[in-house]
Amino acid sequence: MPQGLTRELIALRVARELHDGMYVNLGIGLPTLVANFVDPSVQIIFQAENGILGYGGILETDFDQDLINAGGQPVGILPGACFFGSDASFAMIRGRHVDLAVLGGLQVSEQGDLANWIVPERGGGSIGGAMDLAAGARRLIVAMEHATPAGQPKILRRCTYPLTAQRCVNLIVTDLAVIEVTADGLLLRELAPGVSAADVAALTEAPLHHAADLREMSL
């Protein structure tokens, strides 16, 4: 397998998609790291689905157990922050008021279907806010490793795992590539440094079109 980006560099690349004035929800896991790489000259308001608009950095000490992000991590709040209940929070999400959500992924299909809440052979599964965010955010980025640790593709013609939502993903950012989901299928837009389009195709089950301006990611 080609050497891809670290999780931090995936998060850094995702952070380039956050623009001044956006309201953004970051999912648990890799997406949480995106907040660390936001350009300090832009103002992003982060929404935590447990009822905060405007939370700040993760706190290691001096924490307040009532002030946590959706991953349960203690956070600070920024000037102008506000609190609300879970019913209002998800009305906000389903009502398409959140500009961008970033979620992790187990599988994405060429139609932009997302599976990220259950590994069937492991059983159980936890949905959390993922289905509402996938169905409700105006734009959805999936940030994930391109393939499984065993080298199995995660970007497929059709998802084999139970779905989180249908036709919801707009952009996929992985350790190897940036891929846009379009009405005509998947468009390979950027490659990680040292990674070729052939490397990406070898680890992608779904067919990839190449963007006219296919280029190396700028990190």
């Binding site: 689905e49 209940g85 879970s86 019913d87 929070s89 998800f90 009305a91 999400i93 389903r94 949905i127 959390g128 806010g129 993922a130 289905m131 509402d132 169905a135 409700g136 939502a165 249908q166």
Partner: peptide, 25 residues
């Protein structure tokens, strides 16, 4: 789903017979 859970509870408390949501389709 978390938003559906919150809204189902809200619906019960508000005297509503349910609701339609895109979540879960």
């Amino acid at each position: 789903p978390q938003g559906t859970l919150a809204e189902r509870i809200r619906a019960a408390g508000a005297g509503l017979g349910g609701f339609y949501t895109r979540t879960g389709v």
